[in-house]
Write a protein that binds this DNA or RNA. Sequence first.
DNA 1: TCTCAAAGTGTAATTCTTACACAATGATTG
DNA 2: CAATCATTGTGTAAGAATTACACTTTGAGA
Lengths: 245, 245
Amino acid sequence: MIAESAITSRRKNIKTILKQLESDGIIGISVDCVIFGFDENELKVLLIKSDLKRFEDKWSLLGDLINNHEDLDHAAYRILKERTGLDDVYLEQVKTFGEVGRHPAARVVTVTYCSLINIQHHQLKILDNELHWHRVTTLNEMAFDHKKILDICYEWLQKRIQEHPLGFSLLPKKFSLRELQNLYEAILDVKLDRRNFRKKFFSMDVLEDTGEMETDVPHRPGKLYRFNYEKYQKKERKTWFGIDF
Amino acid sequence: MIAESAITSRRKNIKTILKQLESDGIIGISVDCVIFGFDENELKVLLIKSDLKRFEDKWSLLGDLINNHEDLDHAAYRILKERTGLDDVYLEQVKTFGEVGRHPAARVVTVTYCSLINIQHHQLKILDNELHWHRVTTLNEMAFDHKKILDICYEWLQKRIQEHPLGFSLLPKKFSLRELQNLYEAILDVKLDRRNFRKKFFSMDVLEDTGEMETDVPHRPGKLYRFNYEKYQKKERKTWFGIDF
DNA sequence: TCTCAAAGTGTAATTCTTACACAATGATTG
DNA sequence: CAATCATTGTGTAAGAATTACACTTTGAGA
């Protein structure tokens, strides 16, 4: 398979580079993408089987070394594009990990980005069967320090989704309020009151009625909404939220 | 002066290393510290005059390349210690900047850490007169992309201080409620109601009455409190704050 | 002892959050 | 085509949190 051999050769390349870095005493810089998706009412993360003997059968995040003449953000978009074929996606830097022993082959400092994509809509080309959507909540061991990275990104997401409208990136353009609520309930692991949830979103005034309804549901169909980014943008941001800790 | 010559030689060293990195096509990794202090009811940041011709007379953050066998966090503490003599301080990673052209001498990716220190209490040894506490609000041009970095760190601080008790790091161990309120008002650039401010902090139950009073104030002295870290720690953290954006 | 400047304190109005139940709808089935 | 099913859609009242607001107390200094 073409895709597979391309990936294989890329990996050999990485290993060679890392070896070289290590012998020259140079610190490598990589980007690791934590790619979240939402499917079957569960939060998923896109992982790949580690190719290192040291981490046999362990899952790892999608990452790569950055290029010398490439902005850091650009590297993140590139990696995402290479692995998923997508470029119109939500992507945000979360944290940088730089402990000395975190990569066995060489000293590598990695900058972590979170990406949120809509699994259904994009139907990314997972030709390569080493790629896998894994449930976030039932993930134990991972390669490198990737479990720790994932945990931090998941916490980041839980917090972030309550303050910024990133959740919509995980849903189709048109969605029902039930889908939206399921998303929040899954990510935050809470049960929310349906009426209060609706009231809250309507009062925030960021949803737009598409005039369409759900189809193919075995019950009364709900209205479909879309996120109105312009309205959201126009809202004024406050520096004062209230002290609470 | 001993301190000065040490710094000068260190800087030459950096320049040499950067030159070498650039000619070898290697990406350097640095840490930049945004060191906030609070004095005379104003938020200050510790800066140094840039030593690059390109940025003559511009202020820059305190930074250094990381060492090969040093954890990233450790590098941040080291730099802080080298520049201020302090090691028992609040320090937190904020964001990594990796645009290609951000450093004129070489490709350098920099990881930014925010540090909060109490200017009065520590009396750091600013022997070197190129070091300077600058008002955050009246800072225009800076060297490199440091103004952008500072802006982002300042926004980070404004948000963070409302959710976490980091503000206390900027105050003496014992402080009056007025001092605390001045701190919040200065950082957030808002006026707060004195009674509501007190009510809020007392209801959060993180302040401890020291039994002491202010001295040397030309008016009725206020009680002195200290932050009770244990009580704060014991509070349970919620994943659910409420959606709002 | 008088003045000054800031400390210390309570309450009522408002806004936000939570808890809660029943009728309407469209799809499916017998 | 009538009955059933599952889920949508909707309002209100109680409680909690936030806001706005003014007068008395205290110690220092003149």
